[in-house]
Structures are given as C-alpha cells and as structure tokens.
Write a protein that binds this DNA or RNA. Structure first.
Lengths: 201, 201, 201, 201
DNA sequence: CATGAATGAGAATTCATTCAT
DNA sequence: TATGAATGAATTCTCATTCAT
C-alpha cells in the first residue's frame, strides 16, 4: 500500500520534473530547439529515460499545452466572484492579459505555437471552451444588465478575445518594439479604450 | 563602368531570385521545413551558391521579413486616397486584415515568428514605422474631424493595432478552432464592433 | 521434496509460457521485430523477468529452434505407418513440404535463419539427425524393395532433402514471385517430377 | 569535357567503393548488422556522405541485389555456347550452384534474404526472369531432342530450379552441418542424381 | 562566379540488458 | 520470484555550412 503509493508519487514527481524542465528549456531556447537530448541533459537522466514517461516529444509538448489550458482556466475563474457585471468583464480582460504576460510560454503554447496541435487533440481544447463560455457569460451579464448594448454574442466574444489576444501577443512576440517603460501604460490604456467603448453611454 | 553596373544588376537579380524562391518555399512548406537545400534545388543552383549572396539562413529570413514589411506598407497605402477620415480609418483596419489573411506567411514573418527579428536589426524596420505612422495619422484625422473622441494617440493606435492583429493572428494560428463557414462573419462582425465603438455617438 | 517439485513444475510452466509466446510473436511480427519488450508485454510480465528464465534473447531463439526440430520430427513420424516403401517415401516428401508451408516460421528457424544455430550447439540437433535418419531409412527401404535403383545412400538422402527444401524455401521466401493460383499446382507437379524419377522404370 | 568525364568517373568509383564495402560488410556481419555507420567507418567517410550517393540504406541493398541478379545472369549465359542440349542443361545446373557457392552473399541477396524486396522493386527481377527463361529454353531443347521426356515446362523448370536452389541454400545456410570434406562429393552426387533422372532411359 | 563533395553536429527513437529493491 | 527504473549503445537520417577547385 504505502509502497505503491510512494511509487506513484515518484512517478508523478518524475513526470513533473520532465515537464517543468521541458517548459523551462522551451522558454529558453524556443520550440524547435527544445530537443530530447537537451532535456535529458538538463534533468541529468539519459534520453531513453524520458521515453519511459512520455511516448514521444509531441506528447510532452501536448501535455504542456494541456496543462497550460488548465492553468489558464483556473486563473481566469478567480474573477468570477466579482458581483458587478461590468467590473467582472473588465477584470476578465485584465486577467487574461495578466495571465498571458506572466506565463508567456504557456500562452505561446496555447495560442501562438504551430505544433503539436494535431487534429486528434482538438477535444482537449475543452478547458479552453469552458473559458470561452465564461467570457460569453460575462458579456451576456453585461448585456442583460443593460450596461452593454445588445448584439450577437458570438461576435462580441470573438471581438473581445481578439482584442486581448492582440494586446498579449504583440507584447509577447514584438514587445521589443515598444520601450519597456511605456508598455504597461499602453496596455492599461488599451484596456480602457475597450471598456470605454463597450459601455453603453 | 558599364561592366560593374551589369555585375551589380546581375547580383541584384540573383538575390531577388533567391528571395522570391525562398518566400515561395516558405509559404509552401512552412518555416521549419524551408531548408537551404530545397531552396537551392528550387532555383537550380547549388546550396553553396546561396552562401555567396547571403551570409546564412537567418539573413535570408531577415531580408524576407524586411520585404514583407515593405509589401505590407505598399498594400496599406492604397487606402490613403479615401477622402473621408472615418471611411479611411475603417478601410485601414479592413485592409490590414485583408493583407494578413491573404499573405499569411508574410504576416507570420512580420508579427508572429520568433526567428530573425533580432534586436540588433531594429532600425531596419522603417517600413513598419511608416505604416504605424499612417495608422496614427488616420486616427488623428478622425479625431480632428470630431468623428472620434480625443485621446492619447499612442494608446489609440496601439489599441487599434492590437485589435486587428488579434483578429488576424487568431484566424491564422487557431483558425481551425472556428468553423470555416462562420469565420468571415465573425471577422466582419468584429470590425463593425470596433467601428461602432470608436465612432462618437 | 513436494515443494521443490512444485517449484520445478512452475519453472517449467513459465519457460513454456515464454517460449510459446515468443514463437507466437515471432510468427506474427517476424524475427527482427520480435523484441523482449513485446514478449514481456504479451506474457504480462516485466522484461526483467524473462531474464530469470533465459540468459538472453539468443537463448530463447535457440530453444525455439530446438522445439521446432522436435515438432518437425514428430510431424514427420506420422507417415512411418505407411507400409508400402514407395508410398512412404512419397509421403515423406509431401509431408515435409506440408510441414514447412504450414509452419513457415518454424521452418525458417530450422533451415533458413542465420541466427542462433551456432556451431557450438550442434550436438543439440538430435531431433534433426533422427529425422534425417528416417529419410535415409525410407530411401533404403525403397532400394531394398527394388523400387529405387541402388546408389549411395548419403547422396540420395541429400538429393531428396535438397529437392524438398528447395521447393519449400522458394515458396516461403520468394513465393511472391509465383502467382498464388499456380503455386499448389507447381508444388504438386514438382513432387511428381521427383517421384517419376526415383522410381525404377 | 575531360573534367565532367573525370567527375563522372569519380562518382562511379565512389558508388562502387560504397557498394563493394557494403557487400563485404554484409558478408562479414550479416544483413541486420550491416549499418550505415559501420559502412561509413569502413570506407573512412562520414555517414552523411553515404547519403550523397544513396537515398537510404534500402537503396544500397536494393542496388546490390540488382547487381547480384545481373552478375548471376551474365554468369549463367556462359554455358549457352554448349551445343549438346543435355550437356547444356547439365552445365546449367552445375553453373547455378557454382555461382551460388562462390558468391554466397549475392545469392542470399537474391533468393534468401527478406529485405529489401519491396513490391515496387518487383520489376527489377527482370534479369532473373531472363535467367528463368534460359532455363526453360534449355529444358525445352532437351525435350525437343527427345533426350528428356515431355512434360509441362513450367513444372519442369520449377522442379529443377527448386532442386539446385535446395542444394545451394542448404550448403550456404546449413553447410556447417555437413563435413567440409564430403560437401563437394554430395553436391556432385546430387547433380548426377538429378541428371540420371531427367534423362530418358 | 559557381559548385561538388564532404562533414560535424545533432535529430528522434529503440533495444537488450542490468540492478537495487 | 519479480520488477520498475534506468541506461549505454545503437539505429537511420537531416541539415547548415565549408572549402578546394
């Protein structure tokens, strides 16, 4: 009993070690340069060992991606306590960007990277769908409360997602074009710009 | 003199041949599959020859990126004839997305891809700066005409760029999440959503 | 004593399990694809366990080969009841091919495969020698009965073995060169061709 | 002119070096142990170099196989000068075995080895078909001359091929079971055994 | 100017085998 | 007895790059 539990725990720990190191490496050298060999060296195990825990390289990346979505979803849920619909929606956008910028590589994995995103994995976008539904709910609350003008919910959600995704991805991918000292100001300003607009005047 | 001019011209032509073929290949097979060898085969020269014109693979990609910005800039200029500031600004956004979606690889090169866009090369992004200035001009025209409420120009430009970039990059990178048949509707809707907002009511 | 007997029996059973599964696997996936891991999976034990019963992969293959010879020998014995020497010899050849074609992997193990049949193990080929003796006996009976002309027995045996082995191995290894629908006809015809010949006319 | 010819020759020489060494290695270590690395080491080039001359490992093996068939075919043709049909047919069988035993690995490649014999390569069995036709012609000549009794040509050819193939492959694959000093005697005897038989008495 | 030839470095992956427990 | 964990040593193959000619 105790033994099998310990084994289980150790296995989990090893998986975590691999995933964490993969993520780290991935952050440091980018997707196409994250190799099994480097990963093995990093964790001080042989390359073959990694294959005991993950079928292949894609599975590692895919698992990271899944974790990213889950982490993101959890992160996003935090703002659902906010009572006021408008405040909640505003917080939604702000939190989205917060997550993206403080978990850049996770964000890349979720929305920017090509691989490993295979057809077969589409159903694992479930967590993402939940998050997207949350956005729609929050928008709907604002509309219902008469704070935001009525419109097609799908379009509103896509619009707002595009907006925050645009902000996040520009900062992540081309942030070096924007002087560090004005970045925060621009982000905040952009969020206000949006808020100013969807609020019914 | 005539000789050295001819040589110059020939060199330019060869560079163009390489770059055009690289772009083509890049579009066809994607970034990580665009190899020097395939490129050489395509232009019917040896791999070694390519190194007579470009220092390394990165330089090719970097040059392509520069070309992409120039093409983009030219594309964007087309809407400057429009007299009405509001129409012009609206067209600006629409054209941006048009360009991105009908030149996906160019767009990736410009705003999504990691690779060659190195800090050190920043000053070469003149065309991009010009485009960004164009956006600011168009926004300013709207404000001056009283069509759009006054606000910090940098913030307005960043906001609007983020918005269209968000739309374009979602479609390019995660388009498979959105059924083909609703994509156009969402894009159009999103553009309207934005327009609705920046127009003073 | 009872205990050690049971242990012995259990050990034998385990060995049998391993060998049977190895043979099965070997038939299914071919020699070079029969891996210890697949074998372990098949018997639902760990790879390491297999090494408690067999020194290495070669020993398994070698044992299988031995088993193949035994099976073959038993199979061949079935025709010894036939009284008539000529009929018996004819049946001998036919049975040989029957065995080979309905137990292709066994046959490969015995006569075609490089692997474990090492010089050093020659003395273990008792069953094979028995079978070969049986062939010689059958030939001798025919000669004694005046049905077949007298000749060097070794040569006659080698000749007839070569003949049936040739048929069997062509069909097994290059059967794809011969249309399926004529194979049986050719085999039967070839057997008759032989019979026609060794029968004194 | 002279240059391109020299280059051509050098290329051919390199290919020959690779093929010869592959064959050599193949003889020494067997099929599954003939690796690109060992081959590269043997010829004192890097593994990558080999890929400049052959697409992959299979292509090397396949080329060797093709060469084997051609060599075999040429070898077999030598006996066609013999006028007397019976002598010719007898020589045919003898030569077949001569070739097989003095070019064992070629013979393995042709008729014993599994790989690389892919569907796509079937048409390259042309040389083999020519040889087979030659056998049939020789048999037919004997029949026509009344030396051999009339019978289905396909069956006769398959029978005789089986016979010599049986002899050759037993000696090649299980020769160690037969004392060196009697091998030749057995082979000769077996050939006579066959000849005795197909000759009409 | 152009290139054929070559390669070092590295990619993902597999496997038989060992050993502490 | 059984095994989970680990690995060294291979495997095939690819690629950007160099350099003598």
């Amino acid at each position: 009993m105790g033994i099998s539990e310990r084994k289980d725990r150790e296995k989990k720990e090893m998986e975590k070690l691999i995933l964490d190191s993969a993520m780290q490496l991935f952050i440091e050298v980018g997707y196409k340069n994250m190799t099994i060999r480097k990963l093995a060296e990093r964790i001080e195990y042989s390359p073959a060992t990694i294959y005991l825990y993950f079928k292949d390289k894609d599975e590692i990346l895919f698992t990271l991606q899944k974790m990213a979505f889950e982490k993101f979803h959890k992160f996003q849920l935090k703002i659902q306590d906010i009572e006021d619909p408008l405040e909640r929606l505003t917080a939604h956008g702000k939190t989205y960007i917060d997550f993206a910028l403080s978990n850049r590589e996770y964000y890349e994995l979720m929305f920017l990277m090509d691989s490993p995103m295979k057809q077969e994995c589409l159903d694992d976008y479930k967590a993402e769908l939940d998050s997207y539904q949350q956005l729609k709910d929050n928008i709907k609350s604002c509309m219902d409360a008469g704070i935001m003008k009525s419109m097609d919910l799908e379009i509103a959600a896509f619009s707002m997602w595009s907006y925050v995704h645009g902000i996040a991805s520009i900062v992540i991918k081309r942030g070096f074009l924007i002087p560090k000292e004005v970045q925060q100001n621009l982000i905040d300003g952009a969020l206000n710009f949006l808020a100013d607009n969807y609020v019914r005047k």
